[in-house]
Structures are given as C-alpha cells and as structure tokens.
C-alpha cells in the first residue's frame, strides 16, 4: 500500500542574516495508492523541500505527512528516493549499490543477490553488475539509482528531478522505462520536475505549485490514454495550459 497524505505543511528557512524565508505555506495533498503524481512549479517554489519532508529528511515547522496512516518523522525504507544529483555510492559496484538497502534490512545475502539480479535485468544493465559508478553514463547511473531505491521494496518512490541532468534523448528513454517499471511494480510515485513536457508524459495528476511561498495552485488530472503520444493535440493543449500557469507565477 502507498497512500500518502500531506496535511497543512508549512516550512520556512532561516538565513544567516536572521531573516526567514517561507518555502512552503499550508500545502495539503492526497496521493492514492499506485498513483503517479508530478509536481511542477517555478524554481525556488519549494518542490524539493516538500519532497524532502515526505522522505523524512526535513522536519516541517507545522503540519504532518502520513503514509498509510503512519506519521512520517524520519526517513525509512518504505519511501524510496531518487535524487537529482548522482547519488550512487562511488566506492560500491553497481551490484553493491543495489543491495545496499537490503543489506541494511539484514536480508540474507543469497536473497539480496537474487533480487538485485532481477532489478539489473529490469533496466538491462546485467553486464555492468561489477562496474563502479564512474564507469557508467549519466543515464545508466540514474537507472541504477532507481532500481537501488526499488530493491528496498518501498511503497512510495520519491523522485527529485531525477532526469534533470540528462540529455533529451536519454531523458525520453528513461521516462518510458520508468513508466514500464511503474506499471509492473504498481507503486506510488511522486515526481518533482521543472519540465512541463515530462509531467504531461508521465503523470496521472499534476500538482502545479505557486511561486514562493509554495502553495498548491492547482491540481490537474491528466486523462490522456497511455501509452501517451508526446505530440498529440490534447497533450499540446495541456502543455500550453500548464505553461501559461507557470508563466503567470513567474511574473509575480
């Protein structure tokens, strides 16, 4: 199960000068089990902060997040996370990276290796099992980062602009692969992006956030049938609508 409930989250940051900036103001959000939700918004609107709070990496000033009814205060393996930067442990091989989470859960080694092997197959990186991250391309690294999070069997996968550093072609390919994984694993995905195209291609629902302080401006349900055509008329219309909303926010 992976029902996420975000209730009245507010968060501000204190600068060194003493003044505080409001990053999030009264953000509430319900995400159903198995749903794919994208969060878009102008840069600096607190998208990443929200995701970090849901992961348990930051503690909000007020409000709470629950996963299937349990309040989240610290990170735990039920919520996997994929970071924007390359976050693979460079001192571990691809295989050792994927098994890291299971090692922490004290899963027996034979089982760890078996599960990891399945996930390597899933992203087609079998021949790189003993490679170190420096030997992989950016796209491969993020594939490994995704399956490293999945190998821990989380009910929610949090993704913070995971394809932001990739070139356009690799990006499209990884979006497709992610959708395949999502439909196979049936987990909840919360995906932060600054790319409207990406959100339109991936999401069941798109949460549009306002400029700082970040609030939920609008939640758009995407009804386009899957597999989606990136350039269909409906997709273009939706994209235009979202781009206009973002432009509005940027002017503020």
């Amino acid at each position: 199960m992976g029902h996420l409930s975000v209730k009245h989250i507010s968060q501000s940051f204190e600068k060194d000068s003493g003044e505080s900036t409001k990053a999030l103001e009264d953000v509430s959000l319900e995400i159903e089990d198995g749903e794919f939700v994208c969060i878009i918004g102008p840069s600096g609107c607190g998208k990443t902060t929200l995701l970090r709070i849901i992961a348990g990496l930051d503690i909000p000033d007020s409000g709470q997040v629950t996963l299937d009814g349990d309040t989240i205060t610290v990170p735990d393996p039920r919520r996997g996370m994929v970071f924007q930067e390359y976050s693979l442990f460079p001192w571990r091989t691809v295989m050792e990276n994927i098994t890291f989470g299971m090692e922490m859960q004290h899963v027996p080694q034979a089982e760890r290796l078996k599960t990891a092997e399945e996930y390597l197959n899933l992203v087609g990186l079998e021949q790189f099992r003993n490679s170190y991250p420096y030997e992989l391309s950016g796209g491969m690294r993020q594939r490994v980062a995704i399956v490293r999070a999945l190998a821990n069997n989380p009910s929610v996968l949090l993704m913070d602009e995971p394809f932001g550093a990739l070139d356009a072609q690799t990006r499209n390919l990884l979006q497709q692969e992610l959708l395949q994984i999502w439909s196979k694993k049936k987990i909840t995905i919360l995906f932060v992006t600054h790319s409207v195209d990406e959100a339109v291609y991936l999401a069941d629902r798109i949460v549009v956030m306002s400029a700082r302080p970040g609030k939920v401006k609008e939640i758009v349900t995407v009804t386009l049938p899957r597999p989606r055509d990136r350039t269909s008329r409906q997709a273009n219309e939706l994209r235009n609508k979202l781009l206009e909303e973002l432009a509005e926010e940027r002017k503020k």
């Binding site: 348990g56 990170p75 735990d76 442990f89 999070a149």
Partner: peptide, 21 residues
C-alpha cells in the same frame, strides 16, 4: 547526498552511517 541516500535506504544511526558512508 550520500548520507541522505543512505538514510532513505535504511541506514539511520551514526554507527551505520559512519561505517557504510
């Protein structure tokens, strides 16, 4: 990011983070 990635993967306490990260 290494420390945070480890935390999210279930490596939570100081001892674990020091040893593995």
């Amino acid at each position: 990011v290494y420390v945070e990635a480890a935390k999210v993967l279930g490596c939570m306490n100081d001892r674990c983070l020091i040893r593995h990260v």
